[in-house]
Design a protein around this nucleic acid. Structure first.
Length: 565
RNA sequence: CGGGGCGUAGCGCAGCCUGGUAGCGCGCACGGUUCGGGACCGUGAAGUCGGAGGUUCAAAUCCUCUCGCCCCGACCA
């Protein structure tokens, strides 16, 4: 491709609406344009990157026996009603009616369609196992699209589904996917961790997420350098260091005007770790429950929901007063006439708690002695807490979720009647797994993890082109002829080196700046050195290592440099 | 859904408080001089000031409503 003919609209300045690094660079370098909130056009370079990523995904999925299919984006409501998700899912699903008034929706995932298909086509244990996958558009009406291409309302997803006769076979399919995913992300040049994740309220037999460290990430994981334990913070358990126990008796103290942990601990001159944060939540079925975490900790609502087995919401201030007889800043577990759920960290020690009397707190209160409660892991793990397995300190990292693998079990096969006959002629539900990868997230993550002050630095495996050829003097016939020859040589090499020729009538500086911004691994410059000595410059984008070589050595030199990553 | 911010030329922004003929930089077109890290000079094209309603002799500017976009939080099967 020649730059003079290509749609590569680079921007000199940062677009105002782009915050995340990858968003800014992908806009500036002309890879994408935004049509609406969370809806993007992929321009030629962005499309080429997606194509590269998808090709890698296909190779690795095919290698574990995956069979590519394409399922519709438009779904009848019926299958979603059968699985129960038509009602379980809220505003995140795009819903519409066809001309006859029938309910339809846009697919946010495809478990229902897979189960529908399996119900029709799988009859015998001899038909199992199966791995079906697609690379297909997903539609989700995200409450808050953000960070450019990282969280969008319409996005490409590689989703695969495994069909197995029993949980043991599912384990094998699951392990095969984990292996394939590692190969995919390795080949795409990403740094990532595989972590345990929350299988969700609906049960499930286990799940992992592939998490790539990046400041633009929306999730956090805790990792132990000692034993390798790694988990999403919505799940991660840490053991916080216990504060030195003070010698205080149980007593009520006045804390006028103190509403927050910071105010109470400052007023009483007490370490915040010796205070308890009391939070009233309302569970859908069970009603109000008083939740306790240590003053310096944050409650993780997912953990709370998991501990209670149902969804929860914070109580309104007037509900707090009604239930506990005190305002939010003064509530506590002593004398509370609601169930109390306390974080594990509060099993031992004595603490300052709200007195359920406005402007008063109690000191020296111990769980189990001064009030009854149930314990659960509720607090969000903080950096430095001890690993629950080996005791080494945990690190907490911000990450982008680039893939997940999930053991579904029979959650969809039972309601959609996807069954098979086993060796004994018994009808049994198919055991399913589902596995997702976001190609656009791979691209954005590569930008996040690889760019520098001058622009993007693509891993060569997913770069839109391998070589960027700059003609310094586009009016200099010999230079143009040489550049054209190099361009042709790149494309006709085996395997081809995909080249983009910058033949525009621009000053050299503009071309160099653009070359850096686009992040193509190797730049070839035809300029003064060619005129004087017949040599061209071959330079690596990432290392900026440069060599001057003769015309007939360009392809070889470019290959060497692009391999030096 | 809660909180905050922004919509003025293709892009980035000023002008708004204090109403009075819409501006700057980049980009774009043409001419000239340049030509190895986003050149310079000259000329020029280009804007329903997001939209609707209102106040006023007069609205980009003040008021009301509305649409869109961004950020923080919540949510994310």
């Amino acid at each position: 491709m020649r730059r003079s003919k290509a749609l590569v609209p680079t921007l000199r300045e940062d677009p105002a609406d782009a915050e995340a690094l990858s968003h800014r660079l992908m806009l500036r370098a002309g890879f994408v344009r935004q049509l609406a909130a969370g809806v993007y056009v992929y321009l030629p370079l962005g499309q080429r990157v997606l194509d590269k990523i998808n090709a890698i995904i296909r190779e690795e999925m095919n290698a574990i026996g995956g069979q590519e299919i394409t399922m519709p984006v438009l779904h009848p409501a019926e299958i979603w009603r059968e699985s129960g998700r038509w009602d379980a899912i809220g505003d995140e699903m795009f819903r519409l009616k066809d001309r006859y008034g029938r309910d339809m929706c846009l697919g946010m995932t495809h478990e229902e369609v897979v189960a529908w298909l399996a119900a029709r086509e799988i009859r015998s244990y001899r038909d199992l196992p199966q791995i079906w996958y697609q690379i297909q558009t997903k539609e989700r009406d995200e409450a808050r699209p953000r960070s450019g291409v990282l969280r969008t309302r319409e996005f490409l997803m590689k989703d695969s589904y495994t069909l197995d006769p029993d949980p043991e076979a599912l384990d094998r399919s699951y392990a095969a996917h984990e292996g394939a995913y590692r190969k995919i992300f390795d080949r795409c040049g990403l740094r990532y961790h595989v972590v345990q994740s929350d299988p969700g309220m609906m049960g499930g037999l286990g799940s992992h997420e592939f998490m790539a460290p990046s400041a633009a990430g929306e999730d956090e994981i805790a990792r132990c350098a000692g034993c390798g334990y790694a988990a999403n913070v919505e799940l991660a358990r840490g053991v916080p260091a216990a504060p030195a126990p003070p010698a205080w008796a149980r007593a009520e103290v006045a804390t006028p005007g103190c509403r927050t942990i910071a105010e109470v601990s400052a007023f009483l001159a007490v370490d915040p770790r010796l205070t308890v944060k009391s939070l009233l939540y309302v569970a859908e079925a069970a009603g109000p429950v008083l939740v306790l975490v240590r003053g310096d900790h944050a409650l993780h609502e997912r953990k709370l929901a998991r501990a209670l087995g149902e969804e929860v919401r914070p109580a309104h201030p007037d509900e707090v007063r009604e239930v506990l007889g005190a305002p939010v800043g003064s509530i506590g577990p002593v004398g509370a006439r609601v169930p109390v759920l306390a974080d594990e960290a509060l099993r031992t020690g004595t603490y300052v708690v709200g007195a359920n009397r406005e402007g008063h707190h109690l000191t020296g209160v111990a769980a189990g002695r001064d009030f009854e409660c149930r314990f659960a892991d509720l607090h969000t793990v903080t950096p430095g807490e001890a690993c629950a397995r080996c005791g080494q300190p945990l690190a907490v990292e911000r990450v982008i979720e680039i893939g997940n693998i999930f053991k579904l079990g029979t959650k969809y096969s039972v309601p959609l009647k996807a069954t098979y006959l086993d060796e004994a002629g018994r009808e049994r539900p198919i055991v399913m797994g589902s596995y997702g990868i976001g190609p656009a997230r791979i691209a954005a993550t590569a930008v996040e993890q690889g760019s520098d002050a001058d622009g993007i630095v693509w891993p060569s495996t997913i770069a839109p082109y391998h070589v960027y050829i700059v003609v310094v003097g586009p009016h200099h016939e010999a230079q143009v002829a040489a550049a054209e020859a190099i361009y042709a040589a790149c494309w006709s090499a085996t395997p081809p080196l995909e080249a983009l020729l910058d033949d525009r009538d621009e000053r050299p500086g503009v071309k160099f700046k653009d070359a850096d911004l686009l992040g193509i691994p190797v730049r070839v410059t035809v300029g003064n050195a060619f005129v004087k000595e017949g040599l061209v410059e071959v330079r690596a984008r990432k290392t900026r290592q440069e060599a001057r070589v003769a015309m007939d050595k360009v392809v070889e030199a470019a290959r060497v440099l692009s391999a030096l990553e």
